[in-house]
Every structure is written in C-alpha cells, then in structure tokens.
Design a protein around this nucleic acid. Structure first.
Lengths: 246, 246
DNA sequence: TAAATAGTGTCTATAAGACATTATCAT
DNA sequence: ATGATAATGTCTTATAGACACTATTTA
C-alpha cells in the first residue's frame, strides 16, 4: 500500500488533527445567546462534561469541504440549514488539544430564535443549552471554563459580530423572515448593547434598500407595524458609516 | 504503540493534510504586487512548475501554532519578521489537493517595498517573483493558472485588503517606517486604484491620531514634506467612515 | 379619551468632497 | 521669477443624532 513513489508524494510530516466548530448566535428572551453542548463524561475524552462549541472532527468521507462540514454540524444541532454562516478564523497550536497538534476551523452563524422543538432535536438534548452573552464583555455570562480554547473562539465571535453589526445588516438574520422595523432595531440594540435612535435607524435601513414591504402588519394594543422582509437574503448589506451613539 | 485506550482517545477519522499559505503584498514600482513562488519540477509533485503562494505543510515539530508557522514561511521568503500579518481564512475540501483531503490556513501580510537583496535570499531565488495586481479586478495580471486553489485565495486577499483600506490604516504597513503624508496617500491610492482628495485625506489621518511627526523632511526640487511615523505600529486604526470618491 | 407604539419631520452637528490659495523648496 | 509639490482654508453637501410631533390601534 505504501510504495516508495507514494511515500515521496505524501509528505512525511505528522498530520495535525482537524476539526470544525460553529459559534451559533440567536436572540432568545431579549438576549443574545450562544449555543453550547456538554462534552461526554468518558474520562479518556478531553474535557469531560465541559461545555464546548458544537463541532468536531472533519469526516473526510462525509464532508466535501469545511463549509459543508460546518453546515452539517449546524443542521445536527439546530435542525436549520438556510441560515447565515460565515467563517470566523482558525485556531491551531501544539497545545490546544491534549490529544496532539490540532487546528480548528471556526464558523459563526446567526439564526432566528428557534422554536423549542428545533433545539431539542437530537439524542443528547439535555446537554445542549443557550448561554447568555454578557452585555459588557465579549464573553458568556457563565464563569464555567469551556473546553479547549473555545472561550477564546467565542470571544472572537462576539467581537466580530458586534463590530460588523455597526455597519452591516447582520441582525436581519436574527429575526424572523417577516419582521417589523422595530423588531429589527431591537435586534441591533440587543447585539450592540445600547439603544439606537429610531429616526436615523429607519432612514438608514430604508435608504440602504435592505428591506421590502410585505402585505400585512403586526399589532398589539397600539398602532400596528408594517411588516418587511429582506430584499435579498443571500448577502448582508454594508452601510457607508457606522452607527453612532444612543 | 496503539493500545485500545489510545485508539479510543484518538479519533478514527482520516486526518486531512494541513498547510499554511501566506499572501504577501508590497507596493513596488508604484504598483500593488503579490509574492509567488514557483513549485518544483518533480512530476510526482502536484502542480509542478506552477506559481503558488509561499507556504506548505505545518511542521508539528517546528511550529508551535498556525501563526508561528505563517511567520516562519514569511521569514524564509522575505527575511522580514516585524510586519503586518493577519489571518485571511481557511480553504479546505476533498479535491483542492490531488494528494487527498486538505485544508490550508491562509494569512495575509503587508510589507514595505523590500530591497532587492531581501527577496533574493533563499536558495531558489529565481523561482520567486512579485506579480502585479490588476487595477480593475481582484486578481494577478498574469493569466497563468496558479497551483491548487491559490488563485481564489489571492482573490480573497485582494478583496479583503481593498475593502479594509477603505476604513483602516493598513497602507501604513506598505510604506517605510518614516514616511510623508503624500507617500501614505499614494499607498492608499495604489491599493484602492483611485485618487483621493488631498485635503480630506490629511484631515482624516491627522484626526485619527494615526501618525506622529518626526524630526526631518523629505524633499526634491520642491517644498520638502514633513516626515511622520506610526504612533503605534502594533494595531491598525479604524476610521469612522469609509473613503468616498476621487 | 387615554395609553402605547408606529412613523415622520425639523433642526443641528459633523465630517467629507471640491477646489482655491498660500508656503517652501531647487533651479 | 518659475515650476513643483506641500500644506491649509473655505464652501458645499451628505448623513447622522436629538427630539418633537403626528398617526393608528386597543381598551
């Protein structure tokens, strides 16, 4: 199986372990939250019973690509497939995994608030939970140490999300397919952790041609609000400036 | 060597090949250029004699981390070590390398125009060249197909650079340690491919507290220009707005 | 009509773009 | 003086922020 020609073709280096992890954000109960899974209790597994990002080894027989692998993990944990997914970065070093030199390809995903059933799908549903993101710091509000360097990855994801929200339409992926401008503004405010001016928010969103009116309104015991949907859900919109203060 | 306990600890998946590639930019002869290296001529190597990004397999005995690996490749090809380096993303799939499932961690680097000697260091200096980036498209001006998916990686790097230059101080890493504001503006214009207004450029750069005056001027047969250096070379500065038109 | 939120309008502040003007050097 | 580029100033324009005001629903 290993002819000399083959040994010349395949490099002699030890191969690092290759994993994919996904930071999944949703706005649930008026708070930005991250989905984490609890690792198994086997003591020969690294970080038993620690909370970790959904992810794991690339299955070279199953996954055509890194993104396909990320989408698979996302589907397995949330049941959703048509969501926002972007690459966050990669973390690789000699010591991040006790099993050896390892590199993970991290993605981050934004999904609308899932119905209770969606998340409970999967066998180990008790070991899945949504952790609240701190309003002040770029981290989970729980002090529990996470598995591997997943704490750093979550921090990077929060920072990336917060900074991109300043000048993009990313929060549109956190609300339902049809939404009011107030709901969208609330999603911005929750991610940014600060209030925005209603007037300039609306001017900006409408000027960017981000949304399209749809038939229908959403109303409580007050004036009902016009419903909108994204003009094109494929790619986020970039605004010419960042949002300013409150 | 492979006890049952150990087989349980180490996952059974085939390990993808792991590489690191670096897209190195410099402004040379008034043009944005990318450093490429020619692959060896051995026919059992993939893409013999094709141009490729500097990079290669992670050496788990040599490289503590992905970034350390990227810095090593950068040093090997340019002799420089204190330069701007940021992660670009990762590309991994079943078919990007004929040797098997492979994933590369791509970085991008900005360096000041190297002296001739710097680049010629290394044994295979004839197989290293700076390729001009097209003013109009996000690609090299040469039509030669590159090795692997390195063409896509270069495209992504150019797009990332061009978009970040709109609102950051990145071009400051393309000029010498001491520079005039005109030189800095020229670096912006070369990367963006369009002229900028001198007055607003200067207002912006000075308002951002990006630079500090240093003693000395640089002059030809006209009024000499004040020299500046970066206030802090560690991290790029983000401007509140993007640059506009010409 | 009161309460509540949706939606609009007005004024101001800020910063960029256009472009003219002044400054300082070599020849 | 002339030519060249550095550096600054003035005016206009675009857009965000503050905040008041109007609109439309239910109770």
């Amino acid at each position: 199986m290993k002819s000399p020609a083959r040994t010349r073709k395949i490099p002699k280096f030890d191969r690092p372990l290759t994993t994919v992890d996904v930071v999944i954000f949703a706005v649930i109960n008026d708070a930005l939250r991250v989905l984490l899974v609890k690792r198994m209790a086997q003591p020969d597994e690294p970080f038993p019973e620690h909370w970790a990002l959904p992810g794991g080894f690339v299955d070279t027989s199953l996954d055509r690509s890194l993104e396909a692998c990320a989408l698979r993990k996302l589907r397995e944990k949330t049941g959703m497939s048509r969501v926002y997914l972007e690459q966050l970065g990669s973390w690789g070093s000699r010591d991040r995994d006790p099993r050896g030199w390892s590199a993970t390809h991290a993605y981050f995903s934004l999904i609308p608030a899932p119905s209770y059933d969606d998340v409970v799908a999967g066998a180990n549903s008790a070991d899945v939970a949504w952790f609240k993101v701190s309003d002040r710091r770029a981290e989970i509000e729980s002090k529990m140490p996470m598995a591997f360097d997943h704490g750093s990855i979550v921090t990077a994801a929060i920072e990336r999300l917060r900074s991109k929200v300043e000048y993009t339409s990313l929060p549109a992926y956190l609300v339902d397919k049809e939404f009011t401008l107030s709901e969208l503004q609330r999603a911005y405010e929750i991610v940014l952790g600060r209030p925005l001016d209603k007037s300039s928010f609306r001017t900006r969103v409408l000027a960017a041609d981000l949304v399209v009116e749809v038939l229908g309104v959403r109303g409580g015991q007050n004036r009902p609000a016009q419903l909108y949907r994204l003009r094109s859900s494929a790619n986020p919109v970039f605004f010419p400036r960042t949002f300013r203060s409150a």
